[in-house]
């Protein structure tokens, strides 16, 4: 036997040497976060509604501009919680599509309802969005990191809306914002038609 053969045998043995068991070590965490993070970003119906919340908050100004992003994730999580414990919410898809329509109209009309009414409308839609996220967890992912992922993505969509909404301070910006509201509303009508078919 040549020395190279001996080396090959030894290398083969080293490669077969068992290493540490990694049982249960953060299984599915990364995929859970990414799946959760991408979930709101891959559905245009979610995107337009979340951005509309931010735009409307920017139009309404303080305290709605910060109250909406603080309360929305918690109410949305409540919707997800209902889905996880098996409480059905009827017509979730219609509710999601309606959120696009009504929030778009609110931005387009620059509507300024009382704060509690604005919060109630947004909270109602937040439950629909949260419920939809809650029922769509893929198998073999970590529930906690999936939840963190979609909460963070939703929050960042609000931030995008608020960021764009800052153009409200200029007159042309105000017009552009209203046009954007019209576009969002049109998108909502499209998704509403899809929900009924």
């Amino acid at each position: 036997m040549r020395p190279n053969t001996v080396r090959l045998i030894l290398i083969g043995c080293i490669m077969l040497a068992p290493t540490c068991a990694h049982a249960h070590a953060q299984a599915g965490d990364a995929s859970g976060f990414l799946t959760g993070f991408l979930h709101p970003l891959t559905g245009l119906d979610h995107i337009i509604a979340m951005v509309a919340v931010g735009l409307w908050g920017a139009q309404l100004g303080a305290p709605a501009i910060w109250l909406l992003p603080v309360t929305f994730p918690i109410v949305m999580a409540f919707g997800g919680f209902l889905a996880l414990i098996g409480v059905p919410v009827p017509a979730v898809e219609i509710g999601i599509a309606l959120s696009g329509v009504l929030l778009g109209v609110a931005v387009m009309m620059e509507s300024r309802p009382p704060l509690f009414l604005a919060l109630a409308v947004v909270a109602l839609f937040a439950i629909c969005h949260g419920h939809a996220h809650g029922v769509e967890l893929p198998p073999a992912t970590s529930g906690l990191t999936y939840s963190i992922g979609f909460v963070v993505a939703t929050g960042l969509l609000h931030a995008c809306g608020i960021g764009v909404g800052t153009i409200h301070r200029w007159s042309y910006g105000r017009l552009a914002l209203r046009a954007l509201g019209g576009l969002i509303s049109a998108g909502g009508i499209f998704f509403l038609a899809q929900a009924f078919t």
Binding site: V70, P73, I74, M76, F78, G80, L84, I85, G134, G143
Partner: peptide, 24 residues
Amino acid sequence: RIVFRVLGSWIAASGLLALGWALH
């Protein structure tokens, strides 16, 4: 400071969902 408060609401929301997973 409001950004930090939003971060807090994200933590609470994740906790509420974790409760849902615990009861799932």
